[in-house]
């Protein structure tokens, strides 16, 4: 940490300002640490009763019997997030490339603004839109088509409810798209112009220039962008809860209902009365906290290295 300057000629106001800023940032770190500690403390009972590992590995979640296993909700979180990345990542990188490398500046500014606007929409709006627009469309058009053409794949089997893992993944992909695309744009913008010009000067086509000069040297940064998107997808609650069908189960079909870590907390915390139920929900929260903390940290480190 930087030491405050001791020289007498430094003004008092500067010193006060320094200390205010310093304590504010310390407060932020403190808040993070205390959050972790709180979750750890609240989940102590569940850890004691189940054991940390067996809590993660058992798959029965039954509040009536007071039996809690987190595997189905971990599965739900991981699969829905990965599905959303699978859709959003190529799309976002494509958008970023188009806006930075191909589109005229005016268009790029307008479209870039609109894409970033997606991040400003509250997640409950995404959820409502999901229930009333996306889900009926998936049920009547997309899912029957996929079942008819690709029904031999285990991921596209079963009845088309509309709600389920598939619609949750789609909604999530829309929500993380602005995050990934705007960071990707920054990563591309950090690449020196001369690199692109050299590629072109050596006779590269525009595609070859993008491949050699832009994409190749921004791998780390793009990975970081992806991880930040993943971090957002992992923790998203409201929109997912509204379209995922809320059923804690592990099945191969993406059309089946599922449940995520965040949504089980949102669903059950308010009405949970037994201590072990509350504690188990806190433990799910702790797991989610650790997972998102780790993914975001990895992402940050990767982006820093690029810069």
């Amino acid at each position: 940490m930087i030491k405050p300057p001791k020289r007498k000629d430094v003004r008092r106001a500067d010193r006060i300002f320094f200390w205010v800023i310093r304590s504010l940032s310390a407060l932020l770190v403190l808040a993070l640490v205390s959050m972790g500690l709180f979750l750890f403390d609240a989940s102590e009972l569940a850890i004691k009763k189940n054991g940390f590992v067996s809590f993660i590995l058992s798959s029965d979640w039954d509040p009536v019997q007071d039996v809690y296993g987190a595997l189905p909700v971990i599965f739900g979180t991981v699969v829905s997030s990965l599905l959303s990345l699978l859709i959003a990542f190529p799309l976002s990188v494509g958008i970023a490339l188009f806006l930075n490398e191909i589109a005229p500046a005016k268009l790029a500014r307008a479209v870039g603004f609109l894409v970033e606007m997606l991040a400003a929409i509250p997640s409950v709006i995404y959820g409502l839109w999901g229930i009333f627009v996306l889900v009926p469309w998936l049920r009547t058009h997309v899912q029957p088509f996929l079942i008819a053409k690709f029904g031999f794949l285990p991921i596209f089997q079963g009845p088309a409810y509309g709600v389920g893992m598939f619609s949750a993944g789609l909604i999530l992909s829309l929500m993380i798209l602005p995050t990934i695309s705007s960071i990707s744009r920054e990563v591309f913008a950090a690449i020196p112009r001369i690199q692109r010009e050299s590629a072109l000067a050596l006779g590269a086509t525009r595609w070859e220039m993008i491949k050699l000069a832009v994409l190749k040297s921004s791998k780390g940064g793009l990975f970081g962008a992806m991880m930040l998107g993943l971090g957002r997808a992992l923790g998203e609650t409201m929109a997912v809860t509204m379209v995922i069908g809320n059923r804690a189960q592990i099945v191969s079909s993406l059309f089946a209902p599922a449940q995520t870590m965040a949504s089980v907390i949102a669903n059950e915390y308010a009405e949970a009365t037994s201590d072990i139920h509350l504690s188990s929900l806190a433990l799910v929260g702790l797991l989610l906290f650790l997972v998102t903390f780790l993914t975001s940290s990895i992402a940050r480190i990767l982006i820093w290295r690029v810069k």
Binding site: D60, W61, D62, P63, V64, Q65, I131, F132, V135, P136, R139, Y161, G162, V163, T241, M242, G245, N246, R247, A248, P257, Q259, A266, N267, E268, E271, A272, T273, H277
Partner: peptide, 29 residues
């Protein structure tokens, strides 16, 4: 098999959050 409570493990079905969530699903399905 199931028992009683504010949250139970339903043997079948889709879950909607809140009365509005259930009503929304019924209307849409």
């Amino acid at each position: 098999k199931v028992g009683t409570g504010t949250s139970v493990k339903f043997p079948v079905g889709l879950g909607g959050k809140g009365n509005e969530g259930v009503a929304g699903l019924i209307k849409q399905t």
